[in-house]
Nucleic acid binder design. Structure first.
Lengths: 192, 192
DNA sequence: GAGTTGACACCTAGGTGGCAAGTT
DNA sequence: AACTTGCCACCTAGGTGTCAACTC
C-alpha cells in the first residue's frame, strides 16, 4: 500500500478519531479486548493474529485494519489513544517470542522496529483538507456511497434534506436513481 | 447453548454441507487457511484464537461459529470434510502447549477431549425434517427474514415468484410491506 | 426420483463521510 | 470560531433458507 500512503502523505494524511473509536452505537455490547493492557496513553496495538510463526506472517498481507483510534483517555477497548490535532508517526515492531527459560535477559535484542515516514498523519475529529476527504472516498470501498462518477447527479439528494425519513419514505420521495454504471476496480485497499 | 442443542437433538439435528462450505460466490478470492494441514478427511478445526492462555479462554464464550462444513473432498480452505447423509459426533480437544524442550514425550497426556452427545448431527445438502428448518429459522438471527410471526402474511410473496426481478422491480411489483413489529429477543445464538 | 447445486432475497454486523447540533 | 459529537444514508462482507434446475 506504499503508493497510496504516499499519495495521502503529499496532501497531509488525516485520520479520524472519536470517543469510541468511531460511533458509540456500534460498540454497545461489551467485548473482551485481546490481551488487556494498563489503560495508559502510549498503548500498543497487538495484531490479532499474533503470536504466529514467521511462515504464517509471510503467507499473506499483514493488515492492521482492525486498529482503531480514539481520543478517549478512559478508553478500555484497547484502542490507540491519540490527541486530536496532533501529528503522529506509526511504528511497527516485530517481536521474537524467545523460547528460552531466561528469555527476559535477551528481550532487548528480540525485537526489531520499523517506521515508515509516509504513514505519518494528523489525528482529527473532522477532516480539515477536502482533498484528503476526496482521496479517502476514492480509495476506501466503504465510502463508495459518496463517489459520484457522474451517475446522474440530479438523483443525488443533498445529505440531510431527508433527515428523519425512513428508507421507505425516502424511496417514495425520490425519483428512482438509474443503475450506477460500474467504474471498475479502484487502486485502493483490498488489492493484493 | 446446551438447551438449544438439546432441542435440536430431540428432532434430529441436521447440518448443511455444500461444496464450498456454502455458496461458492462468497469465497471467490483466495485466503490462506490458518495452519495448513494435509488435505485429508478427518481434519481438525483450530479455534481462530488459539493458541491462547487459559485466562483468555475463560474471559468469554468460546464460539465455533467460524467452523464450516463441506462435502468437497478436495477442499483446501481448511473446512471440515463430511459425507452427506452421514451422522457425526463433534469432539472438542483442549491441548496444553507444553513449554518443555522434550514436550513430544508428554504429548499423550497434554490434552483432554470432550464429547457432547446432544451435538450429534446429520450432514445434509438440503434439510430433510421441516421442523429442523423451522427451529433453525426461529433461532438463527441470519434467518430472521424467513420468520413470519404474523406480520401481515399477505405481504409475504411466495419465494421464487419474482425470480430474476431486480430488488427495484420487486419493490414496484409488491405492495409495501408494513413495518414488521418487533418480536423481542429470541433464545437463540448470541445470548450470553 | 432422491440428492445436489447455485442464484437469490433477506438478514446481521459494521466501516464510510455528511451534517446539524452541541461544546468550549 | 473552532472543534467535537452522534445520528444518518450508503456501502462492504457474509451468514440464512428458498427454489428451480441440474446430476446421476
Amino acid at each position: 500500500m506504499g503508493s497510496l500512503w504516499e499519495e495521502f502523505n503529499r496532501l497531509g494524511t488525516e485520520m479520524i478519531v472519536t470517543k469510541a473509536g468511531r460511533y458509540a452505537f456500534h460498540s454497545s455490547s461489551w467485548l473482551a479486548a485481546g490481551r488487556a493492557e494498563p489503560a495508559a496513553p502510549g498503548r500498543v496495538h497487538f495484531h490479532p493474529d499474533s503470536p504466529a510463526k514467521g511462515a504464517q506472517w509471510m503467507r499473506q498481507i499483514v493488515s492492521f485494519d482492525k486498529l482503531k483510534l480514539t481520543n478517549n483517555l478512559l478508553d478500555d477497548n484497547g484502542h490507540i489513544i491519540l490527541n486530536s490535532m496532533h501529528r503522529y508517526q506509526p511504528r511497527f515492531h516485530v517481536v521474537f517470542v524467545d523460547p528460552r527459560r531466561d528469555s527476559e535477559r535477551f528481550a532487548h535484542q528480540n525485537f526489531k522496529s520499523f517506521s515508515f515516514p509516509e504513514t505519518q498523519f494528523m489525528a482529527v475529529t473532522a477532516y480539515q483538507n477536502h482533498r484528503i476527504t476526496q482521496l479517502k472516498i476514492a480509495s476506501n470501498p466503504f465510502a463508495k456511497g459518496f463517489r459520484d462518477g457522474d451517475p446522474e447527479p440530479w438523483c443525488r439528494v443533498p445529505a440531510g434534506s431527508l433527515l428523519g425519513a425512513t428508507p421507505h419514505a425516502r424511496a417514495t420521495l425520490l425519483p428512482p436513481c438509474p443503475e450506477k454504471q460500474e467504474k471498475g476496480p479502484t487502486f485502493g485497499y483490498g488489492q493484493q
